[in-house]
């Protein structure tokens, strides 16, 4: 069973990911952090990363969060890629949505703002 080293450039965190797990699930399985975890099924978009080095296989992911151009350029949902070499990646807009909803309604501070 092959395993590969994944490096998250933002934090310098690295972990070993077995070939049968997605890059995201490999991180979770060892209690590591750095990539936001959402649905783990390619639908919600919160675990989006840019792969800067290495190769991977991928599965279908939501076009709402990853365009065909982005996908071709290595911007992918980390829950939908499995490593076939060591990988280096950068997290894109982690939990961007986490703060957006606080703007609604205008003038009202949110539950989570403090």
């Amino acid at each position: 069973m092959a395993a590969y080293t994944i490096v998250i450039e933002d934090t310098g965190e690295s972990y070993r990911c077995v070939e049968y797990r997605s890059v995201l699930e490999g991180m979770e399985a060892l209690g590591k952090k750095g990539i936001p975890v959402g649905c783990r099924q390619g639908g919600c978009g919160v675990c989006k990363v840019r792969v800067t080095a290495g190769s991977y296989t991928k599965r279908v992911m939501s076009r709402e969060h990853v365009s065909a151009e982005e996908e071709a350029a290595g911007c992918v949902l980390s829950c939908r890629i499995k490593p076939i070499t060591d990988l280096r990646l950068a997290v894109i807009g982690p939990m961007r949505k986490n703060v957006c909803w606080m703007a609604e309604p205008a003038g009202v501070s949110s539950v989570l703002s403090t």
Binding site: G38, C39, C44, N98, W101
Partner: peptide, 25 residues
């Protein structure tokens, strides 16, 4: 009330998780 929303959603943990307010499709 806003300060007890965690227990309202998850009664045992008494806090929200990262995904409740952010992960939607």
């Amino acid at each position: 009330t806003w300060d007890e929303v965690g227990a309202g959603i998850y009664y045992h943990a008494r806090k929200l998780n990262d995904t409740f307010l952010t992960v939607v499709t």
